[in-house]
Simulated assay, not measured.
Amino acid sequence: MKALIVDDERLARNELKRLLENFPKVHIVGEAANADEAIQLIDELKPDLLFLDIQMPGKNGFELLQSLEGDVPEVIFTTAYDEYAIKAFEQNALDYLLKPVELSRLTEAIQRAEEEIHHHELEQQGRTDGTAKVLTENDQIFIKDGEKCWFVRLGKVRLFESMGNYVRLHFDDQKPLVLKSLNALEDRLDSKTYFRANRKHIINLNYIDKIEPWFSGGLLATLRSTAEKPEKIEISRRQAIRFKELLSL
């Protein structure tokens, strides 16, 4: 398991490296003192796991994650502040460790990371074997969330939203959760209809009502829905380039 440590405090990085010596399966491939260094190293080294501080000079840890595209490493936040915990888990973090990091809590986080990465490897193996059928908008899908069940045409789903280890499907006025990663789901969807807008959302192109310019070269898509308040999804800068290439004449 390749890990990258991102923290602006050298002493904090050294202490975490010392603790990680207790985990022979974790191979530290690099360390960064700020977000810009980290983004470059993530692109070069392709780590499986990110130990990420939140408050750093320049971009903070959340802004770093928002800058990443494609396959994003699993994230364990390490911080001296507890007020960011909810936001951290909204970013699909595996765990949230308070400094000074305790070995027992680090052990729990590493175990969770190993399970999640192993799960992704199994998903990838299934895709490599060609066992997963690509679904089109005309396919019927069965959805079960708790005691409720639905059997709907996939084309009715306007939005897929990552919620940690789950994905929320938006269709009609329903929003059930399914136990699946957004990356795994993306590989099952027809790219002519479904577009990865950012690391948390896949949108149905047929439901786009309006597109407008957004911050930093991105786009803002407004989706048609039965909700009183229209759903507005940001298309990241890099994905905005793909979006224009895909839909331009």
Rank of each mutant, 00 (worst) to 15 (best):
K2Y: 01
K2H: 09
A3W: 04
A3Y: 01
A3V: 06
L4G: 02
I5D: 09
V6Y: 09
V6Q: 10
R13L: 05
L20Q: 07
L20V: 08
N22K: 13
F23H: 05
K25M: 10
V26H: 02
H27N: 13
I28S: 01
I28Q: 01
E31G: 05
A33M: 08
N34M: 10
E44C: 04
L45P: 02
K46A: 13
D48C: 05
L50F: 11
I54P: 11
P57A: 08
P57D: 08
N60Y: 07
F62E: 10
F62S: 03
Q66Y: 01
S67Y: 00
S67F: 05
E69T: 14
E69K: 04
D71I: 15
V75E: 00
F77I: 06
T78F: 02
T78D: 03
T79L: 01
T79E: 04
D82P: 04
Y84R: 01
Y84I: 15
A85Y: 09
I86H: 06
I86Q: 06
Q91K: 12
N92G: 01
N92A: 15
N92C: 11
Y96W: 06
V101I: 09
V101D: 03
L103R: 11
S104E: 15
L106S: 03
A113E: 13
A113V: 14
A113S: 14
A113T: 12
E114I: 11
E114F: 14
E116V: 14
E116R: 12
I117C: 04
I117M: 11
H119Q: 14
H120Y: 12
H120P: 01
L122G: 04
G126C: 08
R127P: 00
G130K: 09
G130S: 13
N138R: 12
Q140Y: 07
K144P: 13
C149M: 13
W150L: 08
F151D: 11
R153H: 12
K156T: 14
K156C: 03
F160Y: 04
M163D: 12
G164S: 01
N165M: 11
V167T: 07
H170Q: 12
H170Y: 15
F171N: 08
D172V: 07
D172F: 09
K175P: 09
P176A: 06
P176T: 03
K180M: 13
S181R: 05
A184T: 09
L185N: 00
L185C: 03
L185S: 00
E186G: 01
D187A: 15
R188I: 00
R188S: 15
L189S: 05
L189Q: 02
R196F: 02
N198I: 07
H201I: 02
I202E: 06
I202D: 06
I203P: 07
I203F: 11
Y207A: 08
Y207T: 03
I208G: 09
I208E: 00
I211L: 15
G218W: 14
G218V: 08
L219H: 04
R224W: 13
S225T: 15
P230A: 05
K232W: 05
I233L: 04
I233R: 00
E234Y: 02
I235G: 00
R237W: 08
R237S: 12
Q239A: 06
F243K: 02
L246S: 06
L247K: 02
L249N: 12
